[in-house]
Amino acid sequence: MSGRLHDKRALVTGATSNIGRAIAERFAAEGAHVVVSGRSAERGAEVVDAIRARGGRADFVQADLDGSAEASRALAEEAVSVLGGGIDVLVNNAGIFPGDSTPDTDEKSFDRVYAVNVKAPFFLTAALAPAMAGAGGGAIINLGSWVARLGIPVGALYSSSKGAMETLTRAWAAEFGPRGVRVNAISPGVVHTPVPGVAHPAENMMKGTPAGGIGHPEAIAYAAVYLAGDEAAFVHGIVLDVDGGRTTAAVLAA
């Protein structure tokens, strides 16, 4: 443990699996007290137990971030209480990904995606950023996606919601940065915890990239530690691509 986030108080949404879990575990390993948030109490307890078993500090707060301001405010209030009165780092990670085509997307699905992926983090940030500023500063990290900037023929709805989060990152950096709250985003590539002997269906999307394959959630977690910590004190409003080069470079076969 290097202690890069020593005594920071952090809230990570969608922290019961994949990227969110990796971020919560890495934050705790770096000395932060982490609120693990998600819908499943069982999975939340599993993450918290794993963190505590390694000597870290973590608590679970159950939340269904349905896009309502009430749900976001309730999570903010409970997390602040659990963490002893304040939050230094917010990670807006929770999201849903329907891979439907545009003609196959109904209105209910459209509203659900924007509720979870955009409205929920919007109102959670609104609930926490002013208090962060009042306490002297903090860091907010949003999760974007490589598909927000490189078009693929499915999942247009999800892509657009992540594009919205990247836009909000820049707007919030301008709004809250002068008051001491740094706002940045991470844009992951295809990231998945590998299962031995099982090929992930999205592996083909990483062919022709410098990395040549899918990434592990820990890669995103390390990027989040950087953006949350003092080393990134001069970093505002960026979208950090952690995507194996998917959006920046093409590797041509010989």
Rank of each mutant, 00 (worst) to 15 (best):
Y158R: 11
S81D: 13
A219I: 01
D241S: 12
P188A: 14
S40V: 05
R43P: 01
M165P: 01
G208N: 02
Y114L: 15
A223T: 05
H216W: 03
A28F: 07
G177P: 08
E231V: 07
N117T: 11
S81A: 15
S17G: 00
N117V: 08
A185M: 02
G177C: 12
G56S: 06
M206R: 01
M205F: 10
D106P: 05
A29T: 08
G137F: 07
F60N: 13
G215C: 00
A69R: 15
G38L: 09
E78W: 01
R182I: 14
P210V: 02
L227I: 10
G177N: 10
A250L: 13
Y226D: 07
G229V: 02
T209Q: 02
F110D: 09
G67E: 05
A45Q: 15
A71K: 11
V154T: 10
G213A: 10
G237Y: 03
A219S: 04
W172N: 10
G84D: 08
K162W: 10
P98K: 01
D104Y: 04
V12R: 08
R246N: 09
Y222D: 12
S101F: 09
G212A: 04
D106T: 13
A224V: 04
V34L: 01
M205V: 10
S72Y: 11
M205K: 10
H192P: 00
L143W: 09
V116C: 07
P188M: 14
R21A: 12
G180M: 01
S160C: 12
N142C: 11
G197L: 07
P103H: 05
L11V: 12
A50R: 15
Q62V: 15
A199Y: 00
G38W: 06
S37N: 03
Y158T: 05
V47D: 10
H236L: 09
V113S: 08
H33S: 14
W172M: 14
V116M: 07
R26K: 15
A120Q: 03
S37Y: 03
H33M: 09
I186A: 06
V181R: 11
K108Y: 00
L5I: 03
V154S: 03
A58H: 05
H33D: 09
G180P: 02
D104G: 03
Y222Q: 14
R52F: 00
F60A: 12
I141Q: 13
G189I: 02
T105A: 11
R26Y: 02
V239W: 00
S17F: 05
V195I: 15
L11K: 13
V82C: 05
G144S: 13
